[in-house]
Simulated scan of single mutants.
Amino acid sequence: MKAKPKDVAEPGSKTVKSRAPIKRPMKKAPQRLPRAERQARVLEKAAEYFAEHGLNAQTRAIAEACGVSQRLLYSLFPSKAALIDEVYKREIVGTFKAIWFVQLKDRSVPLESRLNTFYREYYETLLTRQWLRLFLYSSLEDLQLAPAYTNAVVTHALEIIVTETAHELGCGVPADPAHLTEVGWLLHGAVSHLAIRRRIYSNDNTTPVDAVIAMQVRAFLTSVPALLPALAGSRA
């Protein structure tokens, strides 16, 4: 008896078509992130972890928080100290905008307006809860991160602020750099402590931040003439 050809129906039966094999989608192999991108992600997570838990954590806990193995963490950063240093560069120094120096020196804009603009942006952009906690933790650990930032960035900003204020008010600039810096800290310290009160101490004062900064700037400009030397040849 001959075999019947495929797909030939029996008399009175329905034709049965052969089904084509179902093509299943191929699973894509997970892509490996470029090294620079992986480092950036680890630094972001490490910054969050350090800000909440301090800098004393073991690398195993840090790696787990960053979603990588301890071995991979060490392949990206040779040591915990190197990781902390990179977090500092990214999260502490890296958030300061160099354009602020230029804007503070722009004498086409009234000084009070310059100071208000700078400190509003400084408060919102830089003095975040995470930034403040990282900065305070590094200080408590006696690391040189906080002094390095202050010496490299803040001191320069204070020199500009006091020099511009002296020019605006017709005063002299203190010859002693330490004295000059302390005058600048009267305003800078007030704004920094405002951020600490609101974002670390959870102070619930409802006065808008912009209004508080404006008060601090006005108080600074009012008090400075009594703190700066008179210009040579001017009347005391």
Results as ranks from 00 to 15, higher is better:
85 D>R: 13
206 T>W: 02
68 V>M: 11
112 E>C: 00
91 E>H: 12
3 A>E: 13
58 Q>N: 15
193 H>G: 04
196 I>N: 01
96 F>H: 14
12 G>T: 02
222 T>M: 07
170 G>C: 03
94 G>K: 15
107 R>Y: 00
63 A>S: 14
103 Q>M: 03
12 G>F: 03
7 D>V: 02
35 R>M: 14
200 I>W: 05
165 T>E: 05
73 L>E: 09
62 I>R: 04
184 G>E: 05
64 E>F: 09
104 L>W: 08
226 A>L: 12
73 L>V: 11
119 Y>H: 14
166 A>C: 03
138 S>C: 14
205 N>A: 13
22 I>V: 07
153 V>D: 01
86 E>C: 11
25 P>T: 10
112 E>H: 05
70 Q>F: 01
214 A>E: 09
47 A>C: 09
236 A>P: 04
150 T>S: 08
199 R>A: 03
112 E>T: 11
210 D>I: 13
165 T>W: 03
164 E>R: 07
109 V>G: 01
47 A>T: 14
191 V>M: 09
187 L>N: 07
58 Q>T: 13
68 V>C: 10
221 L>C: 00
195 A>R: 03
56 N>V: 03
220 F>P: 01
123 Y>F: 15
223 S>V: 12
78 P>N: 12
212 V>Q: 01
43 L>A: 10
152 A>Q: 15
96 F>L: 14
181 T>W: 01
190 A>R: 12
19 R>M: 04
202 S>R: 15
190 A>E: 09
172 G>K: 06
206 T>D: 06
167 H>M: 02
10 E>N: 02
43 L>W: 10
123 Y>C: 08
164 E>S: 04
225 P>N: 07
40 A>M: 08
221 L>D: 01
101 F>M: 11
174 P>Y: 07
